[in-house]
Simulated assay, not measured.
Amino acid sequence: MSLVRRESLAEQAADLLLSRIRDGEWNVGDKLPGETTLAPALGVGRSTVREAIRQLAGQGVLVSRQGAGVFVTALDIPENWDAVLHRADIVAVIEARIAIEVEASALAAERRTPEELEDLRRALTDRAHHRVDVEKHVDTDMAFHRGILRAAHSPILLELFTHFAPRNRRAMVDMLRDRGDHGDDADQATHERIYDAIDSRDAGLAATLTRTHLNTLKELLIR
């Protein structure tokens, strides 16, 4: 029980310290007073101050520098990744996809295994068979692109794509419903060409085709 109370007190101290930072008592780059000054100012002990500082450091507000002290690095707790993506303009998401998927396509052309190529072919075929239902079309399209990320053998790029996936899916479904058409022959042919470039290990062509495809998608979104 004492541990629970101590954590609760540290959280309260962290909230109070953050409030004073928000109010402008310290700016970014400023050094905080030492524990012996902060403890009575916050009405807690030095161990609680240390825990409060650790919490705010973990949230990106403070940084402890060995031998130098504690410094302010942000005036508020940065928004978490999911909150940022939820509000992100879909055009910004597509721009991020360009940065991720162009490189991934080139890497996939260089690194894909025969098994991964078979998975991509199945995903492409599945995509071609789901052109009527918007949600199924978007899901099969994303499965194809995710297959490219897996074939790239880049865990970080795959993780970034996964973070963008829910926001991208919602936007694509909404956009295609508004347009009233999707999955035409030209669009499917573009994906076939991307697959062929990966199959033939042409990294440059795979990257170029992916960039062109996503830039075309971006133009459709801003019309």
Score class of each variant (00 low, 15 high):
residue 12 Q to D: 15
residue 119 D to L: 14
residue 30 D to Q: 05
residue 72 V to E: 07
residue 20 R to H: 12
residue 33 P to E: 02
residue 98 I to F: 06
residue 164 F to V: 00
residue 133 D to C: 02
residue 26 W to L: 10
residue 201 R to H: 15
residue 84 V to K: 10
residue 65 R to T: 07
residue 52 A to L: 03
residue 131 R to T: 15
residue 160 L to G: 00
residue 37 T to S: 14
residue 175 M to K: 02
residue 99 A to M: 07
residue 9 L to I: 15
residue 98 I to P: 04
residue 182 H to T: 01
residue 223 R to W: 00
residue 202 D to P: 11
residue 188 Q to S: 06
residue 97 R to Y: 02
residue 96 A to E: 06
residue 73 T to G: 04
residue 116 E to L: 05
residue 167 R to T: 04
residue 3 L to A: 08
residue 138 V to F: 06
residue 196 D to F: 01
residue 176 L to P: 00
residue 164 F to L: 13
residue 70 V to P: 03
residue 218 K to S: 12
residue 82 D to R: 11
residue 149 L to T: 13
residue 61 V to P: 05
residue 53 I to R: 01
residue 77 I to G: 05
residue 36 T to M: 00
residue 179 R to W: 06
residue 134 V to S: 00
residue 217 L to F: 08
residue 68 A to K: 15
residue 12 Q to W: 09
residue 101 E to Y: 08
residue 56 L to W: 03
residue 134 V to L: 00
residue 162 T to V: 06
residue 115 E to S: 11
residue 52 A to R: 06
residue 96 A to D: 06
residue 13 A to E: 10
residue 32 L to R: 05
residue 168 N to C: 00
residue 61 V to N: 07
residue 144 F to Y: 11
residue 15 D to N: 15
residue 19 S to F: 06
residue 146 R to D: 04
residue 57 A to R: 11
residue 54 R to M: 07
residue 89 D to A: 09
residue 74 A to M: 04
residue 72 V to C: 03
residue 36 T to S: 15
residue 39 A to I: 12
residue 91 V to T: 15
residue 13 A to Y: 15
residue 54 R to K: 12
residue 41 A to Y: 05
residue 25 E to D: 03
residue 190 T to C: 12
residue 20 R to I: 02
residue 23 D to Y: 00
residue 141 D to Y: 08
residue 212 T to W: 12
residue 15 D to Y: 09
residue 38 L to W: 10
residue 77 I to F: 04
residue 64 S to Q: 14
residue 219 E to C: 10
residue 139 D to H: 02
residue 199 D to P: 00
residue 124 L to E: 05
residue 114 P to K: 00
residue 77 I to H: 06
residue 150 R to F: 12
residue 100 I to V: 15
residue 127 R to E: 04
residue 175 M to H: 11
residue 65 R to I: 11
residue 216 T to N: 15
residue 45 G to Q: 15
residue 216 T to L: 14
residue 168 N to L: 02
residue 176 L to N: 03
residue 96 A to Q: 13
residue 29 G to T: 01
residue 203 A to W: 12
residue 101 E to H: 08
residue 149 L to S: 05
residue 61 V to W: 05
residue 67 G to M: 09
residue 187 D to M: 07
residue 124 L to A: 08
residue 91 V to Y: 08
residue 65 R to H: 04
residue 185 D to A: 10
residue 185 D to E: 11
residue 58 G to R: 09
residue 41 A to R: 13
residue 151 A to Q: 10
residue 130 H to C: 03
residue 151 A to T: 10
residue 136 K to N: 03
residue 56 L to V: 04
residue 166 P to E: 04
residue 115 E to G: 09
residue 208 T to F: 14
residue 66 Q to H: 02
residue 100 I to D: 05
residue 51 E to F: 01
residue 81 W to F: 15
residue 44 V to E: 08
residue 216 T to C: 02
residue 213 H to D: 15
residue 207 A to K: 14
